[in-house]
Structure formats: structure tokens, C-alpha cells
Write a protein that binds this DNA or RNA. Structure first.
Lengths: 156, 156
DNA sequence: TGATTATACTTGAGCGGTCAACAATCTAGC
DNA sequence: GCTAGATTGTTGACCGCTCAAGTATAATCA
């Protein structure tokens, strides 16, 4: 039943639809798990991970937004939650009063470590169960050609 | 800047992150266009398309939900909008009073035809600009191995 | 220096979706 | 035929995010 639909509408369409379906399904799966066992959204996790690799475990909010592909306001809202939970804090920028840094707290680091273990294991399991290393490289390479930021190229 | 990050965290992770980023970016692009030029959500479009290939341009709401990977209530809400806009109507099931069919109206058919042309063209453009037919087949094949319904396999 | 424009962030309104609870109906088993 | 359970669809409460507008600060340039 999985591939009977959408015959010969062109391979582009087929790929696009599978992409959407796969995202919906996989995301729902992993997100539910992450939420249940750690109380984190996929984006929450992503943000913590990004912060952890910033200098001194911090990043400008704008930079963060760009990295995880959220709006400025989206970031504000998301960080609201993580701040309330005590996982990230704020730091002012000495040279530019407009920017505030989001920095991982110790609890945040701890939370990330704890959730990483199970979450990354799930991701690995789900993927390596279905693909060989070789195929994963192919997949990553192909996906990497798609636009990866809000507007970007896409000349029209 | 696109692929410098996330080195050697394992190819699974790399693929997963690219998948998420690509989805966020591409989806935002296409969805914005579709919304602006036709006032439809990606899911709206998907639903119209699914209905158009149902028998007599109709489907049970449950069936529809399953096809587009939405919740039952998600479908209710989405169809609310399409009904208000006059693109779909309801029909009762003679043999089971619980189910109601969602059926494409003539306006709905028209809307789908109109929006298909530009939307599908955008999808094709975006993809065929970056991939060969061969690569698209690979991509589709690989994506097709991922879970494609809510819970599904994923034995754990 | 002072006006103009650009950037960083926040806020209110709203949208699209989920989940949990519910009402209605169908189906099985006794 | 009746009760017990499953299935279909809707609703209320809420969540995560966007967009548009607003505030505050920086940068540009006359």
C-alpha cells in the first residue's frame, strides 16, 4: 500500500510526496518519544545542541534562529520555555546592547547529555535499521543539495 | 557554510539533521508561494489532491486522515476551512451512519486544477534544478524506506 | 551632529495542528 | 436482543510557530 499511489505523476512529485510523508511520520515518532521521556521538543533539543557547540555554550539569539531555521519570534518563544525550565540563561553583549546571548546552564548541559543518549540512539536505530552507511551518505549528500535556509537561492 | 557543521557525529545524525533542515526550508518556500498565490496550505492542497483521486472525488474522513498523515481532528479542522471556502462538501454513507464522506465540489476541482499547475511546476523546478532523474529515483527510493504512517513498524 | 535606515528582540493576534474527552453508531458474543 | 467494546467524527484546551507591529539600539551618511 505504500507505493501504489501517485503513479507516473513524474518522479519529482513522487520524491516530494515521499519526503513530506516521511517527515510527518518520522518526526511524529521521534518527537513523541523525546517529549515523553525528556519533555523536550525536537526544536528544543536542536537548540540545546546548537548552544552546546557555541563558544562558551552560548549564541546570539539571531544566530540561533538562523541555525535552527526558526523566526526571531519563534526563538524568543522557544527560549522562554527553556529559560523557565532553567536550561538556558541570558547574557548581554558588551559591544552591542541590542543582542542578548542565550547560554546553556549547567542543568541545560546535563539535560542535553541525558536526552542525547536516548534520542540520538533512536535516530541511529531508525536509520541504520533501514540504510547502510553507504546509503546514508548518499541520502545526506542528496538532501544537502536542497535549500537550507529560509529564502536562499531559488531564483524566480 | 552549509556542510561545515556537525562533523563526525555519525552519518545518521548528519542525514537526520539535513533532513530536518531541508524540510523546514523547502516547506517554508513552497508553502509561502502556495499560500500567497492560491490561499492554500500544503495540507489543503494535499487533501484536495487526494480527494480528486478518490472514487467520485470523495473519501471517508478517516481514510483521508490516514493518507495525509493527520489526526482525525486535524482533518475535521482542515476540512472546516475547505468547506467554508466551498471546495469540499459532505456526503453521508448509506451503510454506516458514523462516516461522512468529504467530496470535492466543482469549485474544488477548479481550485485544484488552477493551483496544481503553478504548485507542481514549482516543485518540479526546485527538484529538477538540483537533481537528475536518476538521482530523484534514488532519493525517492531511499525516502520510501522510512516509516510512512503514524506509528507503524519501528519495533521497540 | 542629527536624520535615515537597518538590525535585534519582544509582543499580540492568529493559524494549524495535537491530545483528551465525548457522543453516536456499528460489531461481537452471550 | 443486550451489553461490551471498537470505530467515526467533533469539540475544548492548549502548543508551537508565524506575521505584523513596536521598541530599542547601531550604523550610515548628509
Amino acid at each position: 500500500m505504500s507505493s501504489q499511489v501517485i503513479k507516473e505523476r513524474g518522479i519529482e512529485l513522487e520524491a516530494w510526496i515521499r519526503f513530506l510523508r516521511a517527515h510527518a511520520a518520522v518526526t511524529r515518532l521521534l518527537s513523541a518519544e523525546l517529549l515523553e521521556t525528556h519533555g523536550l521538543t525536537l526544536n528544543d533539543f536542536d537548540v540545546l545542541a546548537q548552544l552546546s557547540r557555541g563558544p562558551d555554550h552560548g549564541l546570539k539569539r539571531a544566530e540561533l534562529a538562523e541555525r535552527v531555521l526558526l523566526t526571531a519570534s519563534g526563538i524568543t518563544r522557544l527560549l522562554d520555555g527553556l529559560e523557565r525550565a532553567g536550561y538556558v540563561g541570558r547574557a548581554e553583549c558588551p559591544t552591542d546592547a541590542r543582542v542578548t546571548y542565550a547560554v546553556l546552564t549547567d542543568e541545560g548541559r546535563e539535560k542535553l547529555r541525558g536526552s542525547s543518549r536516548t534520542h540520538l540512539a533512536s535516530v541511529r536505530a531508525l536509520l541504520s535499521e533501514r540504510f547502510t552507511k553507504r546509503e546514508l551518505q548518499q541520502l545526506a549528500e542528496l538532501l544537502g543539495r536542497l535549500p537550507m535556509r529560509g529564502d536562499a537561492d531559488c531564483a524566480d
